[in-house]
Design a binder for these strands. Structure first.
Length: 660
RNA sequence: GCGCCCAUAGCUCAGCUGGAUAGAGCAACGGACUUCUAAUCCGUAGGUCGAAGGUUCGAAUCCUUCUGGGCGUGCCA
């Protein structure tokens, strides 16, 4: 059901005789912001009046006269300068709600489109622990995939794993120097993680040690700059220059502060290693560990038998590690074609670029120079190694050959915008642009302080511990003994755990998806899991209430349909009508998600519908309804609300529980 | 230097291709429970939509300039 579309079609017909651009005016129909103006408003009379040279209210009257709406709407009203206010007829609403009963799709249509949409998302580096930065791509991509698939599109999800990079050099080095083959064979996943952390810690230690003098020097310079600026006396006659000087001083001081905080974090990292006897001994014994790791990586890429064998042996375990997180998040992929899959195709990509005259050698690197970009896209380094731009081009070509998609969505951080601008530009010149390429970019997850989220020591926060925290908090809330007393039969521990997991994981996903993807947002676990507010808990709770009512009434949806067939469906309270209208707007919410690739449209819709339901719940008693006819309508609304909320949450990747 | 993005209530955030009095949640204050789960609902208060111009019937939304902030910027991904 798509009211806006229906109304637009009707107006389109009526506008044909009045203008040669009926669709542009018909598109000026939207839901009202204030219910006193009805349900929908058409704002086309004002702009149209100028074209026709007639007063807008006269134009509105003419349009109202021409448009055929009597089966759908009450008589339109003309208000203010020429707004046409539309109110959907109760009989039409009732008819549509009747149509939703028994419809598993909740009134949402299916597209005819058959050409696939490839969705590239998550794409972590295996062997490295997943961190908070991976939430967004994973959760947004999964939600888009679920939503598009439900809308009828042939979706193909692909997790473009980083499975061929330095992190394997790290593990291989760790295995060769610190690994115990027996222990690794016995318990590979945690052992490999341990090896990764051990070696990576040493590399970071070395980097930190190397950086400290640079940073100290930089602080000196920045301090001197600041002091120099402060010593200048502003010209009192030139207010603008004085202001600019003040600004420069503030900026210089900020720079000093930021460098100092970086220095502090480096020092704490160094102190951490040196305080631990094992780490300190490691650090002393492996002074060139960073270079050695790069050598192990290079050997792997060159096909060194030993390293290749280790890579083949370890990769499945590294995948197990990330799959554990995906299982917990309930995220699946159709394909997991990592960087290693494209390794053999990279040379060919570079050759083709060169033979087509797109690439040229500059400073020993193979570059593609593009109009409108200062820096070239480098596809092969001086040392012969390929870069991610090369892999992305190879991946694009493979996807076109293999899947013949209409669209490819890249759910990747906004900071890579320029990279994708270049990739898309080259794709055009490379003959790979017979497809809509979209960088579905997203902002950064920030901590409480408004800076990118990190632990005190400066490292990124692990994703799994974050999920654990969320579930722990959800548990204390969900398993509050006072609340548990309300349940009959009592809630066993297993059910409590299930509820805590569903609420905790859902809270993180829902909060992430609730923000527009392009904006940065502050991560606040307390707010996400809170009982009050714009949270998944609120929607999940609303769902649980619908199920409680249906259970008490001992009615399945089929029983409700039978009741409606006997009594009909009609509204006796404004809250019923408002809820009905909201339920029928589900399709519009899903199409809005598709349009901007922005799941927050669905989050907003679900919160609004849950809120409307809460009001309905408050003012319209179901079991004590005044008559069986009224009860039939209310039961229908309750059953449909339950299904819409459940389905909507499912498309966000969020689960529900029957009671909480 | 150049490029991209952002600035909306005390706080966290919405605001669709320009529409009527700019919304929600949190926090604050005042109400409603012998509950179909009060994890709820109702009400009050809170805004010069960073600033200034412009486009027009009409601007948070489009354009220009300015201010403040973030990110990116030739061999990491």
């Amino acid at each position: 059901m798509h009211f806006t579309q229906l109304l637009q079609d009707r107006f389109h017909e009526a506008l044909k005789p009045l203008t040669d651009a009926p669709e542009s005016f018909a598109s000026m129909i939207r839901p009202t912001t204030d219910p006193k103006h009805g349900d929908y408003q058409a704002n086309l009379a004002m702009p149209l009046s100028k074209k026709l040279g007639k007063p807008p209210r006269d134009v509105a009257a003419a349009v109202v006269e021409a448009v055929k709406l009597d089966d759908v709407c009450e008589t339109p009203e003309i208000a203010g300068p020429g707004f046409i206010n539309l109110k959907v007829k109760d009989s039409f609403l009732a008819e549509q709600i009747r149509g939703l009963l028994g419809d598993a799709r909740c009134g949402v249509g299916k597209t005819d489109s058959t050409q696939p949409i490839v969705i590239d998302f998550s794409s972590p580096n295996v062997a490295k622990p997943m961190h908070v930065g991976h939430i967004r791509s994973t959760v947004i991509g999964d939600s888009l995939a679920r939503t598009l698939k439900f809308l009828g599109y042939h979706t193909i999800t692909d997790n473009h794993l980083g499975d061929w990079g330095t992190q394997f050099g790290i593990i291989i080095y760790g295995y060769k120097h610190f690994g115990d083959p027996e222990v690794v064979a016995k318990d590979p996943v945690p052992e490999l993680s341990k090896l990764y952390r051990r070696v990576n810690g040493l590399i970071e230690y070395r980097k930190a040690v190397a950086w400290v003098p640079d940073i100290e020097q930089a602080i000196e310079t920045a301090r001197a700059d600041a002091a120099d600026l402060e010593s200048q006396t502003p010209d009192p006659a030139d207010a603008k220059a004085a202001k600019k000087l003040k600004k420069s001083i503030a900026s210089a001081n900020r720079r000093v502060e930021s460098l100092q905080s970086e220095l502090e974090s480096l020092r704490s990292k160094i102190a951490g290693v040196e305080a631990d006897p094992t780490s300190a001994a490691d650090a002393a014994a492996h002074p060139d560990i960073d270079k050695a790791v790069l050598q192990e990586t290079a050997k792997l890429h060159q096909g060194d038998a030993e390293n290749l064998e280790l890579w083949k042996k370890f990769l499945p375990f590294c995948k197990d590690e990330i799959n554990r997180v995906y299982d917990r998040l309930d995220v699946q992929f159709d394909h997991t074609l990592g960087e290693s899959f494209y390794h053999s195709m990279l040379g060919g990509v570079v050759e083709q670029l060169e033979s087509k005259g797109l690439a040229s050698t500059s400073d020993g690197a193979v570059c593609v120079f593009l109009d409108g970009f200062d820096a070239p896209m480098i596809v092969r380094k001086q040392d012969g190694a390929f870069l991610y731009a090369t892999t992305d081009l190879a991946t694009l070509r493979y996807r076109l050959d293999e899947f013949n998609p209409a669209e490819i969505l890249y759910v990747v951080d906004s900071r890579q915008s320029e990279h994708f601008d270049k990739i898309f530009a080259v794709a055009g010149e490379f003959g790979l642009a017979e497809v809509k390429l979209v960088h579905v970019n997203f902002g950064t997850v920030l901590g409480e302080d408004g800076k990118p989220m990190k632990t005190r020591s400066g490292s990124l926060i692990g994703l799994e511990s974050l999920l654990d925290d969320a579930v722990d908090r959800a548990r204390t809330v969900v398993c509050d003994p006072q609340r548990l007393e309300n349940f009959d039969p009592p809630m066993e521990v297993a059910e409590q755990e299930m509820v805590a997991e569903t609420v905790g994981i859902g809270a993180i996903k829902f909060a992430d998806l609730g923000h527009h993807r392009t904006s940065d947002y502050r991560f606040n676990l307390d707010k996400m899991v809170a009982l009050e507010g714009n949270t998944s808990t609120y929607v999940q709770y609303s769902y649980a209430r619908t199920q409680a009512i249906l259970q008490r009434a001992e009615k399945a949806e089929s029983d409700v349909i039978a009741m409606i067939d006997t009594h009909g469906l009609s509204f006796s309270h404004v809250a019923e009508r408002t809820l009905a209208l909201s339920l029928l707007r589900f399709e519009e919410a899903l199409l809005a998600v598709h349009k901007d690739y922005a799941p927050n449209a669905l989050v907003d819709y679900l919160l609004d519908t849950a809120r409307v339901y809460s009001r309905f719940n408050d003012s319209c008693h179901v079991l004590k309804a005044e008559s069986e006819a009224i009860q039939a309508t209310r039961l229908a609304l309750v059953a449909l609300t339950g299904r819409v909320l459940q389905l909507g949450l499912r498309l966000l990747g969020v689960g529900v529980v029957p009671r909480m």
